[in-house]
Structure formats: C-alpha cells, structure tokens
Design a protein around this nucleic acid. Sequence first.
DNA 1: CGACCGGTACTTGTATACAAGCACACGCAC
DNA 2: GTGCGTGTGCTTGTATACAAGTACCGGTCG
Lengths: 224, 224
Amino acid sequence: MYATLRRKVLTMELAPGAPVSENELAAALGVSRTPVRESLILLAEEGLVQVFPKVGSFVSRVDPVRVADAQFIREAVELTALDDLPSVLDADVLAALHANLDQQDRAGIGLEEFFALDEEFHHGLLQLSGHGAAWATVSAAKGHLDRARRLGLGEASPPAVNAGQHRAILDAIVGGDVAAARAAMRTHLRAVFDDVERIRAQSPSLFASNDGSTPVRRNVVTWD
Amino acid sequence: MYATLRRKVLTMELAPGAPVSENELAAALGVSRTPVRESLILLAEEGLVQVFPKVGSFVSRVDPVRVADAQFIREAVELTALDDLPSVLDADVLAALHANLDQQDRAGIGLEEFFALDEEFHHGLLQLSGHGAAWATVSAAKGHLDRARRLGLGEASPPAVNAGQHRAILDAIVGGDVAAARAAMRTHLRAVFDDVERIRAQSPSLFASNDGSTPVRRNVVTWD
DNA sequence: CGACCGGTACTTGTATACAAGCACACGCAC
DNA sequence: GTGCGTGTGCTTGTATACAAGTACCGGTCG
C-alpha cells in the first residue's frame, strides 16, 4: 500500500503539486481510507507529500533545499563509509556488485530498471563497509533527490554515464585506493546534484516556490 | 500525541520490551485508537517500537546494531558538516550556542533539561554549516542512541563532562581550527558510544537478544 | 504424569460513521 | 462593475464497529 503510493510519487505518476485526496485514492485502490491515510502519514514523514489539516494533501513540489540536504547527507554517509572499508572485502557482496554493474552495462536497459540497480549498487557499497543498515536512513532522506534525478536522467546524465562512474568507484575500492574511491564517489554524487538547477529552469512548476505560501486547491500541476 | 509517546519511550517511562497496546494507550490518554495507532506507526518507522501483526506492539529493546548505525550516521553528518563551515559564522546562531553552553554549565541542571540543551546545541552546530535541515534526519535515526545515552549519562559521562566537550568543539570552530573541531567532535561522539557495551553488561534485558526470536507476551521487562 | 486439543481473551488491521473546518462559487447589495 | 456575505462541497481528524488471527489456559485423553 505504502510502497505503491511511494512508487507513484517517485515515478512522477503523481505529479508534484497534485492533490492526493484520501477518499479518491481509497476509491481508486479499492480499499478504505484508513490504510491510505496511514500510508500518507508515512509519505509525509519523509517529505514526499504535504498534509494541510482540513484542507487537503498534496504531492510535495521538489524542494531544492531538501534536495541539497539529501545530497549532503548521502555524500556524508557514503564518503565516510569508504573510510571504514575492511582490508579484505566480502566476496559475496563483491560478486553481487560486479553482477550488478554487468546488468547496468546491458544495452537497452529501462530507466526504472536502472534505478533499481543503482539503489542496489549503492546499498551494496555500504554493506562492503559494514554499514548496510544505514542505507535505510539514506534511502528515506533521498526521496526528493530521487524525483529530481528522474527528471534529469536520460538527458544530461544518461544511464551509461552513471554506470561508468559506478565502475570507477568499485574499481578504486577493489584496488584499495580509498582516496580515488572518494574522488570518484564525490564526482558521481555531484553529477546528479548539478543537474537540478537546470531542470528547475526547465520545469519551474515542479519545484517549490521561493516563498512559503500555502498551496491552494486550484494550484495544481497539469502535465502541460 | 506522537510527541508524548515518543518522550515516554525515550525517557524509559515505557521500558524496552514493554507491550504497548493500542487499546490500553488510548484508554490511558483519553483518546481513540486511531491517533494512538498513527503515532505507533511513526514510532515503528524510526524503530522505537516493533509491531507484530495480530500479536501486539512492543517497545523495542536497545539494539546495539542500530545504536552503532545511528552513531555512524551522526558522526558522518556532523563531522562532514564541519568541513562546510563558512568563513564568517552567523552571529545569531553563535550567540544562541554560547547562551546554550552557559545554561549547560549551570549547577544542578536536570538530566532531561540537559538533553534538551544537547539537542539544541548539536542542531545549532549543523545550522552554522548551513545544514540545519539535516538535523531532522539525524534526529530520527538517533532514537536508539538516545535511549542508550540516558542509560549511560549520570554515571560514566556526567553532564559536566559533556558540557566541557561541547565547549571545546565550539571554541575550535570559533578559532577557525577545523581539524581541532573534528577531533573534539569525534571524541565527544565516541564517548557516548563507548558506554553502550558497559550498560549492556549491566542491564542485558533492555537490549535485543542476539537471536532474532519473536517476543512473546510474557516476555515483559519489569523494572526490577 | 505428560501431551494434545479446543475455547477464550486479547491483539492488530480494516471499514465505516460522525465531527470540524476551510476554500470556492454564487448571489446580492452598493 | 465591484465588494462582501453566505451556502455548499470538499477536505482531514477522530471515534467506533467489525474482521481476522494468535497466544495462553484448562480440560481431556493416552
């Protein structure tokens, strides 16, 4: 239930700014308001939707501030994790990472498929350092970032480029060069972040306005 | 509602392992099951309670793995933030931090009062680097850590020691010595973490058992 | 005496009904 | 034409009723 809604938001099936009525969703999904409402609460917790009491719930616009925050947290965690790499890497995780990269290199890979592999790859990297459990926190904070990435990917940073950066990171890790791994990771993470402003200029309606004005009902994003 | 329950869990008023029945809480707090249930869902999200469908909800035992994770995330975020300190610090935030430290130094400060000041201090440090919004994520991941701290504080790491470490951090920051600030911060954060194992030996029933056995109803922690 | 089987009392999960409140549209007065 | 007041329809928040399932207790049988 929650996973379904989260996916709809992350894949932009529910556009930023769009109203998400509990009644409407409940009817559409064939369940009661209760589970829908509980899912919405969770989504609100990670900032993907905004709930205005007695007014309505809306899909959050992509907030550059939150994107920057997610970026910072992710960078901090993933870079710091590299410092904790053990001298001998876990063979199973390593094999999974290499298999993952091979799949990323496959021609004609879909966008959503690539995203799933990307998630798995970064999670695996954290596992290599023994901090796999921290991925949950990173993942939760990463919602806004992911939406921005989906807007940017396929244009400035096609999957092939990302796959290449992934391989550079893993190669540096396997080679034992932590400094190189950190540099590659930083380059990779920043590449995503640098696209946000460009996207913002392209589709400003998807982003939060500068002032903190409360959204009104008519203020709906239509996929023009 | 959620804040009330969270406080009860963090202050150990609701002991780890204790059952938290929705009906019972609703009756005790004079509200319906619905708001209690929604609060419990949020608490479960941050790992403070565990919900076993059709069985019951229980306050999570302190999980050393999760404590270590929270520690790692916190260390990663707060140390990395120090690298982003601007050349000129925000005067207002700085003043608030100094005022905070003065309050920490007050004699006869209560434990809960100190905790609130500690939260405020670390949040302020993040604001100094322009990453104040990241505190929400750190705070959410920090639940397990906080419970462990409450167990340890007043014994091995009395408030006075922590206050001193806080001052060392801020002094290094004001002095522009990022390396010293990092060192002081690391010392401070590690001091908390190093106590966990000792506490565990002292009150093992408050911690998660090694095996992942599902708790049964009779398995209740009584404050012996 | 020990093992097994069923009833009971509790749990959470879901659906529904009611309460309270805000935004918008319509109509009226100026 | 313009501004204001009121009614209506929607929203979320809360309370309650029902459904489904599990653990425990006690009786019964071997």
